[in-house]
C-alpha cells in the first residue's frame, strides 16, 4: 500500500471504514448484565456479575469497589487451537481492560465489593481487545452499574505508511515496507478522553496524533451502535430479563 497507490484495502473496505459491527444485549440470562459485540468476524461475549462481596477479604478496598476482568480467547476462536487457561497475553489484556473501565465506573457506592467482568472471544480476527471492551461497556450498563460514561474502543493500524481503521488479521500480518503497526485505543464515548492506548510497532509522533484523531472519529460509530442496542433492548423487554 506504499505511496497510496491503493484506494481500497484487502477486504474492499475504505481506509477509514470499520468492519460491519453488530451487538446484542442480554445474551446470558444468568448474569446480571451481558452483551456480545463483533467487528466483522471478531466476536466477543461479555458477562457481568455483581457488585458482590469480595473474598478473600484482604483484596477488599474499604473505600470503593473493585473491578475484576477475565479476558481470554476460547480454544476454538483461532485456527490453531489455543491452549485453554490463562496465558501471559490474556492476563495482560485483562489488567489493561480493568484499568480502561475503572475510571468510568461509580464504584464508591459499593466499598468492599467486586464486579466480575468475564470477556470471552468466541471468534478471533484481530482487534479482540477492542471488541471485548465494547462488549464489556454494554454489559456493565445492562448490569445497572453506575457509570459516568460509556466506553468505546477501536484499533487503528498503520500498514507501511497508510493509516487504516479497525485492523483485521490479514492486515495485522502485513510485512511490506514499514510493516504493520497496531494501535488499540479506548475512549470515553462522550467526553473523548483517552482511557487506554497500546501501540504495537513503529510510528512517528505526528503519525500517532493523526491515528488518535482517526480513532476518536471511528469510536463515534461504535458508540452509536452501543447506544442503539441498549435503547432497543429496553423498548423490547422493558428492561431486565
Amino acid at each position: 500500500m506504499a505511496d497510496n497507490i491503493y484506494t481500497k484495502r484487502l477486504d474492499g473496505r475504505k481506509m477509514d471504514e470499520l468492519r460491519k459491527m453488530s451487538a446484542e444485549v442480554g445474551v446470558i440470562p444468568n448474569a446480571d448484565g451481558s452483551a456480545t459485540f463483533s467487528f466483522g468476524s471478531t466476536v466477543a461475549i461479555a458477562a457481568v456479575y455483581g457488585p458482590k462481596p469480595l473474598h478473600p477479604q484482604h483484596l477488599q478496598n474499604p473505600k470503593k469497589g473493585i473491578i475484576r476482568c477475565n479476558y481470554d480467547l476460547l480454544s476454538f476462536s483461532v485456527t490453531e487451537r489455543k491452549r485453554p487457561g490463562p496465558s501471559r497475553r490474556s492476563q495482560e489484556i485483562s489488567r489493561i481492560i480493568e484499568w480502561a473501565l475503572e475510571p468510568v465506573l461509580g464504584l464508591d457506592e459499593f466499598p468492599g465489593t467486586v464486579i466480575d467482568v468475564h470477556l470471552m472471544i468466541i471468534q478471533a480476527d484481530a482487534s479482540t481487545r477492542c471488541a471485548a471492551i465494547n462488549a464489556a461497556a454494554i454489559a456493565l450498563a445492562h448490569a445497572g452499574v453506575p457509570m459516568k460514561d460509556l466506553v468505546s474502543s477501536v484499533s487503528i493500524g498503520k500498514l507501511d505508511k497508510q493509516l487504516v481503521v479497525d485492523v483485521s488479521k490479514e492486515e495485522e500480518d502485513y510485512h511490506e515496507g514499514e510493516g504493520a503497526t497496531d494501535i488499540a485505543m479506548t475512549f470515553m464515548s462522550n467526553s473523548d478522553k483517552v482511557l487506554a492506548l497500546q501501540l504495537d510497532g513503529k510510528i512517528t509522533p505526528e503519525g500517532l496524533k493523526e491515528a488518535v484523531k482517526l480513532g476518536r472519529k471511528a469510536t463515534k460509530e461504535v458508540h452509536n451502535l452501543q447506544v442503539k442496542v441498549l435503547k432497543e433492548y429496553l423498548e423490547k423487554t422493558g428492561g431486565g430479563d
Binding site: D32, G33, G50, P51, K52, A141, H142, A143, G144, V145, L230, L234, G238, G239, G240, D241
Partner: peptide
C-alpha cells in the same frame, strides 16, 4: 441505564436492570 423520569425541573433515572 434506565428510564428518564421528569417531574418539573427535577430529573432522575429509574434503573431497569441490575441487582
Amino acid at each position: 441505564y434506565g428510564i428518564i423520569d421528569e417531574s418539573g425541573k427535577f430529573l432522575r433515572v429509574i434503573p431497569v436492570s441490575g441487582i
